[in-house]
């Protein structure tokens, strides 16, 4: 199927001109300033920002845990900001949410925690039991059904949170720093589970995080938020490979090796190029092929070859040594292959 741009894409979440200000004493603080955001059905959208940037407030406006000072929130075509509180309660059942600190009922077993939203929806006892068993299986907690949260590890608690959030078959899953309290291994396991759920159930995921690793692992698109404003937004690959805003560059350097190009330039004998490439060509002998017919030599000074969600990519800083003419030929060869090559400045 051909990619048809935005045609036929259903916009599941539409935030228009959202602002939120708090009053602390006599001072009014604007946590969010006129943010517009649309999220398509089925995508995994990440919002990244430093603490205090307003990302948590923004996420909470989607299910109106935070009511915006102005602007409208639409989920699945329903304008939540116009609903009565009982209508809102019904709509919220289509929006699942998981939390950094899991927020499970300490006094209820895993089974009862997962059953909570089903009891709210007044399902029959038998229907609840069937559904809870399905969910336990989905998140791999069958063996722990009758334990209490205090007896579980952090990763297991988040699995309970995910099962609970999915219980009422929501269209959207909101993730509020869902992996920030977990160790790196557990974080990856939970991210895999989220990706799996997205694929299997087609559920749209909106997450916030301060870790670029989370964005890189599972997100399709990303918005970078700083000072209550979206400063950069786009496909994760584009934003990652060509960050524009200083905050974005800062986040990208969390996962890429951070380096100071000036140092390299000062000690360079040849020509320094920064090369980006994406997709299957990552696994081809690109550099070798490009220099083969010339007498140009090269040194890799810095580099990353990795994957973003399921897309392989590479990002290298290379010093080419040789005659100008020949180096230009090498760069042309690389560009012919579809690589991006730019002078390091």
């Amino acid at each position: 199927m051909a990619y048809d741009g935005w045609q036929g894409v259903i916009q599941l979440i539409e935030l228009s001109d959202i602002s939120k200000s708090y009053r602390t004493g006599s001072v009014s603080v604007e946590a969010i300033k006129h943010i517009d955001l649309t999220i398509a059905k089925g995508e995994i959208f990440g919002i990244i920002g430093h603490s205090g940037a307003g990302k948590s407030t923004l996420l909470r406006t989607v299910n109106l845990l935070e009511r915006p000072t102005s602007g409208s929130v639409k989920v699945g075509g329903v304008e939540l900001t116009k609903l009565s509180s009982s209508q809102l309660q019904k709509e919220r059942r289509r929006i699942g949410m998981i939390f950094q600190h899991f927020n499970l009922l300490a006094m209820a077993t895993v089974r009862d925690n997962i059953a909570f939203p089903l009891r709210l929806a007044k399902l029959s006892r038998a229907a609840i039991q069937t559904r809870v068993n399905e969910l336990l299986q989905l998140v791999g907690l069958e063996a722990h059904a009758d334990k209490y949260p205090a007896q579980l590890s952090g990763g297991q608690k988040q699995r309970v949170g995910i099962a609970r959030a999915l219980a009422s078959n929501p269209d959207v899953l909101l993730c509020d720093e869902a992996t920030s309290a977990l160790d790196p291994q557990t974080t990856n396991a939970i991210l895999d589970l989220l990706l799996d759920i997205n694929k299997k159930l087609g559920i749209t995921i909106l997450l916030i995080t301060h870790e670029m690793h989370v964005i890189r692992s599972i997100c399709d698109r990303v918005a970078v938020i700083d000072g209550g404003e979206v400063v950069e937004m786009g496909d994760v690959l584009d934003v990652f490979l060509q960050p524009q805003h200083p905050t974005t560059k800062d986040f990208v350097s969390q996962v890429a090796d951070s380096f100071d190009p000036r140092e390299l330039i000062a000690s360079s004998k040849g020509r320094l190029m920064k090369i980006n490439y994406v997709g299957e060509i990552t696994y081809e002998p690109l550099l070798f092929n490009a220099v083969r017919s010339t007498s140009v030599q090269f040194a890799i000074l810095q580099g990353t070859v990795s994957r973003m969600k399921n897309t392989p990519y590479g990002q290298l800083v290379i010093e080419f040594i040789g005659e100008d003419q020949e180096i230009r030929q090498v760069i042309a060869n690389l560009r012919d292959k579809g690589l991006e090559a730019g002078e390091l400045a």
Partner: peptide
Amino acid sequence: VDRGVIEAAQAMGAS
């Protein structure tokens, strides 16, 4: 009682 748990219940559509 943990405020987060109350918030989670609200998010699930609890009255």
